[in-house]
């Protein structure tokens, strides 16, 4: 019974938090550009508007299924996240399961795009998978380092270790280099500039989303909420001591997203090959150095 309530509530909270993160993303962007920015309910308006579209084009069964995979992947991921006050499946699943599930949405998107004939979509998804290949290497190194430090892949255990020892045992204090490398990888995962090679509105017309209209686009907007939240929570869990209570936890998650958003706005867009090269050079290099330090201890 408890599990059932968690399965319903955890994605719901994730979604609402995600809405705030999206609002923050757009407001911060507006402030940096010296604009006023969207009204408070803008993310809700967008999603309701998209779901209230009166006509809808679908490109076949795979296209429909891709939306299920997209949202399903993230909703499942929410249940595996260790958040304060909820048990969910965080104890049963572990870090590797979570990382695995977080790849599902991107693959779902690839399946959906494959069934529509738009060349922009195909270019976009090939770039998205390339970007995934790029940022997964430093992320994997950071995660290996973290699991070696904590001696476990159990997320609840990782959070408990950090919280018992106080701030001195937070991942960011015990393995700073891995935290930096991991953060750069996380910034790539957000898919914002300078790594937004697969959205690239002026270049390939939002890539994988090019044929997504109406309700499908609405599902993608919801996915964006989940995405910001999930990645933020993952980083907080590994390096920032997880959540002691909800206010602190949300502040930490918002801080992770905020730094990324603030950095995003001053960059243009890298080329695909440059993204791969950069990701495999700097974040991977820093993370490997951090891993060496962890192994030497």
């Amino acid at each position: 019974m408890r599990l059932l309530a968690d399965i319903v509530l955890m994605p719901l909270i994730a979604f609402i938090t995600g809405l705030f993160l999206v609002l923050m993303y757009r407001r911060v962007r507006a402030k940096i550009e010296r604009r006023v920015g969207p009204p408070f309910f803008q993310p809700v308006y967008d999603i309701v508007k998209l779901f209230a579209k009166k006509t809808q084009i679908s490109h076949g069964v795979m296209h429909d299924l891709s939306i299920v995979l997209l949202l399903g992947g993230y909703i499942t991921a929410e249940i595996f996240l260790p958040v304060p006050g909820f048990k969910g499946l965080a104890e049963e699943g572990d870090l590797l399961t979570l990382i695995y599930i977080m790849m599902v949405p991107m693959l779902g998107l690839a399946l959906g795009v494959g069934s529509c004939a738009n060349p922009n979509g195909s270019i976009g998804i090939s770039r998205a998978l390339t970007a995934m290949l790029a940022y997964d290497v430093p992320l994997a190194v950071a995660i290996i380092g973290a699991t070696m430090t904590y001696g476990t892949t159990n997320l609840v255990e990782i959070v408990r270790i950090q919280q018992e020892g106080g701030m001195a045992t937070w991942g960011i204090a015990t393995m700073p280099l891995l935290a930096i490398g991991g953060y750069l990888a996380v910034h790539g995962m957000f898919g914002k500039e300078p790594f937004e090679i697969y959205i690239a509105p002026a270049e390939i017309a939002t890539g994988p989303m090019v044929e997504m209209s109406g309700k499908y686009m609405g599902a993608l907007f919801i996915m964006q909420c989940f995405q910001l939240y999930t990645i933020g929570v993952l980083y907080v869990t590994l390096f920032l001591g997880g959540g002691e209570n909800w206010p602190l936890f949300l502040i930490k998650v918002a801080a992770v997203v905020f730094i990324s958003v603030a950095v995003t706005n001053v960059y243009g867009r890298y080329r695909t090959d440059k993204v791969v090269r950069w990701m495999w050079k700097w974040p991977t290099g820093i993370a490997l150095l951090g891993l060496a330090l962890v192994m030497a201890k």
């Binding site: 757009r26 803008q42 939002t206 209209s213």
Partner: peptide, 22 residues
């Protein structure tokens, strides 16, 4: 669209494909 008049204040954003546009 941009900072002079900022139409995002009333929720108007540029979009790049006809599928997503209103």
């Amino acid at each position: 669209i941009t900072s002079r008049f900022d139409m995002e204040r009333v929720g108007i954003t540029p979009m790049v494909t006809p599928r997503q546009a209103d």
